[in-house]
Design a protein around this nucleic acid. Structure first.
Lengths: 223, 223
DNA sequence: CGCGAAATAGGTGTTATCACCTACCCGCAT
DNA sequence: ATGCGGGTAGGTGATAACACCTATTTCGCG
């Protein structure tokens, strides 16, 4: 199971975060004397990350959730789909259920809070490179809860957001949704943005397919 | 079942077609001496049609399939959904399976070819206003075929179109789809347009939901 | 009583999507 | 052999969608 750079003992890491200072901080804390971990690159958004994963073939990708453009969860999904042997660890400030769920669904091997200690981070990276999973303690508890018959899905989206998403699923444009629900198009856009974030997607089409597949919305009167 | 203008014997008709000359021709052939049929309005696209149906409340809407903007099938779907007691007759030059299927799914009470005789057209309008259905002979045959275990769904979309739609359902943008399938974004757009026409929808979101619900595409590897 | 979450909405851009065209190539059927 | 559907692709323009901001109100929760 060690077919990439890991075979010679070094673990190749790609850091993805939109804050240069944060990337530098992580890099410093990872690259300690023994040379076990090598940071082979940095990316500042999801698109760049996917490109670099292709060219650099890191063993582990450390990625933030909230980034401009393509968010970390969506990027994780694509990395996991395009390069199944590349492990992804989410580095997040959020410990919300929905993010954890979405991140793990997207194929992440780890979900660490940014409050993690440097030594623990190194341990997690090494562990994940060898096939383990890494979860911050607070996250681990949530995951267990999620596994034991989770009603998280229902609470994921607010009532208003579900109404918006339902209409969107019928093909309604934001303008139409706005008229239907008596709100401005800007509010519809805001709801859509929040829905995207919660579901870990980056387009209305993705949001709608997820909703349809998980039956969060009633399609009964669509045809 | 006669709660609108029909109660006094006259049938109120709305004509929807993007060709003014065609509308005039239909109007002339409908409004004969006895005054049974009254053309209460004309619209030149789907959006206008929906608006006029709301304000004029016709008994019957005669609508063309191919129109700029919202096509006739999509307009039919919305009219049927918003005003269930308004009957819609599709007037089309196409006798393709997919259009017939989509039109009837959308809630049309009739599907007539534009080659129809004036007297038959009048008879169909009157019949539909009283609750009958109206199909051109060539169409009636197709409908019967469709009803007897139809494999139309599978044949609806071409192989290439299904590939495009599958990727679209995963939230891929046209640009992404283009790269994935090694074609230009213009070709992707062309495929999307054709898909919209065949399904009788007018946005990628609608196309995708239909595909997901009818399971035309494999979502298995989405999550 | 402040604090966060949800709902509302405006400002300002950049992209993506979609409509309507034309055009060429291919294979298949009339 | 001529047409026709499918796949390909370019031009042009309008509109929708989306990113990133800020800001207000309401409401429940420590």
């Amino acid at each position: 199971m060690a077919q990439s750079g890991e075979s010679d003992g070094t673990i190749r890491v790609l850091i993805v975060d939109d804050h240069p200072l944060f990337r530098a901080g992580i890099r410093e804390r990872l690259e300690v004397a023994d040379g076990t971990i090598v940071v082979v690159g940095e990316a500042e958004d999801g698109h760049q990350a996917i490109g670099l994963v292709g060219s650099l073939r890191p063993d582990v990708v450390l990625i933030d959730i909230s980034m401009p453009g393509m968010n970390g969860i969506e990027a994780t999904r694509q990395i996991h789909s395009d390069f199944p042997d590349v492990r992804v660890i989410i580095l997040s400030v959020h410990d919300d259920d929905q993010y954890v769920q979405a991140a793990l669904d997207a194929g992440a091997s780890g979900y660490l809070l940014k409050t993690i200690e440097a030594s623990e981070l190194r341990g997690s990276v090494i562990g994940v490179a060898h096939g383990d999973s890494a979860l911050s303690p607070a996250i681990a508890r949530k995951v267990l809860t999620l596994l034991s018959g989770t009603p998280t899905d229902a609470k994921k989206l607010s009532e208003r957001e579900l109404q918006v998403l339902t209409l969107a699923a019928r093909g309604a444009a934001n303008k139409t949704i706005a008229k239907e629900l008596s709100m401005s198009t800007r509010t519809v856009e805001a709801h859509m943005r929040n829905i995207f974030d919660k579901l870990g997607v980056s387009s209305r089409t993705e949001a709608v397919t997820q909703a349809v597949r998980h039956q969060w919305i009633k399609l009964s009167d669509v045809d």
